[in-house]
Design a protein around this nucleic acid. Structure first.
Lengths: 146, 146
DNA sequence: CTCGATTATATCGTATACGATTAGATCGTA
DNA sequence: TACGATCTAATCGTATACGATATAATCGAG
């Protein structure tokens, strides 16, 4: 029997890829109220969890390169959400810190995660299980990619 | 008790977002052998499953806008993988068709999905269950986004 | 102490992504 | 059958993403 040709939805990679875009569409109207894009929001989340990080540290957390982060951080700086300054102890490092304005955004964004979680249509338990499963896939992929 | 601040990995959206990047890293060396980027590969997958589609149809399948697809398709055309031509029956539509060269790529890419599936570290059953779960989330998100 | 190796960030080129707008073709109705 | 509404792609502006390279600072072997 001739197996039918696989379609994009048959691929786990496409399921992940397109669901990422779908999350973006849900977040966009929420984040526009804060003048943040989604990747910028992720940087803010990382800084709300731990302030005063280097570009490299943020890149490790978010799995992004400096070539992505540097322009993004400059835009966050221009908006007045963070400051960027060379570490006097080691001028190679750039330390990124929240401004008061940047820290204050956390309040306004407090309900966003619950709001988006609800939009997934999954119960908290199922959502947690799904996240764990995806993170294990990510870990395996990164190991495979070297 | 003061709950600790949520980190990016606690967010399902970030798990999906970053795993998408991880898939890309695994695919990149494979696809470079075919002179394809990952989004270009997805378009080829869609065309291998069903040739002769309009830009709009590809966009529906891949959840991408014409503003993303048009330049991408022009690059695929320049590489000689597809042709683009206005539909004589309705000049608003642009029909995208595989060339022989484009159709031939399917052979070379035959093993890629199994290869990447293996890199996820999940058994076929678990992988299928994960994909189904993610697609249901995507569906719910798109409905929520309106 | 010095100079090549390493490290951290920034820069550059190319390719997504998307919203808003535009251009051109087709449709629907008076 | 005109002609405004609708539909389909394409265009434009902005913001990711990443590999390759550049630059500046620090490290380390001799």
């Amino acid at each position: 029997m001739p197996d039918t040709m696989p379609e994009p939805n048959d691929f786990i990679c496409f399921a992940v890829y397109s669901t990422g875009h779908a999350f973006n569409r849900v977040y966009k109207p929420l984040l526009e109220a804060l003048d943040l894009t989604y990747p910028q929001y992720l940087v803010m989340v990382a800084l709300w969890a731990r302030d005063d990080q280097t570009v490299g540290s943020l890149g490790e957390t978010l799995l992004l390169e400096s070539s992505t982060l540097t322009p993004l951080l400059k835009r966050l700086e221009k908006e007045g959400f963070v400051t960027r300054s060379r570490d006097p102890a080691d001028e190679r490092h750039v330390r990124v810190r929240l401004t008061e304005k940047g820290a204050a955004l956390q309040e306004k964004a407090r309900d966003y995660p619950a709001c988006v979680d609800a939009a997934t249509g999954l119960a908290p338990d199922a959502l947690r299980a799904l996240r764990t499963s995806i993170l294990s896939v990510r870990s395996a992929l990164l190991k495979a990619a070297g």
